[in-house]
Amino acid sequence: MKWSELFTSSVGKKFVMGLTGVFLILFLIVHVGLNACIWAMDGGQMFNLAANFMGSTVVMRILEIGLFATIILHIVQAYVLELQNRRKRSIGYQVPMGNKGSKWYSRYMGWLGTLILFFLIVHIRNFWVPSRWLEMPEVTYPPGVTVHDLFGLMKDTFTNIWLVLLYLLGCVSLAFHLMHGFQSAFRSLGVYNNRYIHLINGIGIGFSIIVPLAFAMMPISMYLNWVQ
């Protein structure tokens, strides 16, 4: 078997989806952990310092590039698969199967992913672009570290109720995307022992509820001024 086949055959494409998916899950853990610093009730100091650290070293920059590459690969591959798969049944059924046998979110991963993609574009424009490429306000913390005031930017951003709602929609999409994606990624990567499957399914459900919920609480907390 050629190397290329390992990633381009029907099963190989799933490897790519699974591997990139798992990487993105890992990223979500880091992201949610870091953002949780907004609840430190220290005027955003811990959060701003942490965010600064994430962009401060070469290693982090490389990882950042890797992250973008992964996201793009995940998206492109997903659309390619979706389009190819749709072509395998030229004449559809009069009576669709609907939820007889599968969950709606398993079948609509493409749509959920598309929603997340829209959200992502707005999200990157809101935070990553200003922080990385544009001028933005800075704050200085003792003993004299000057960093971008992302906390302030968040507070500003989430005064707009429409943006808050958009973020909530993004989180809901993410939750359902993960509900399927988490366990599916591990299946694609070949985890078949029942004991691990049960474990992964359990963790997967927990993860897809807790992480998006935590993300959702951030704009809400800001909007309702729960954090200062």
Partner: peptide, 19 residues
């Protein structure tokens, strides 16, 4: 798998409908 791909079947997205 190579033969399956050649025959024009799609790839699995783990919806579980088959099971």
């Amino acid at each position: 798998i190579a033969q399956m791909d050649k025959e024009g079947f799609g790839s699995c997205t783990s919806t579980g409908a088959c099971e």
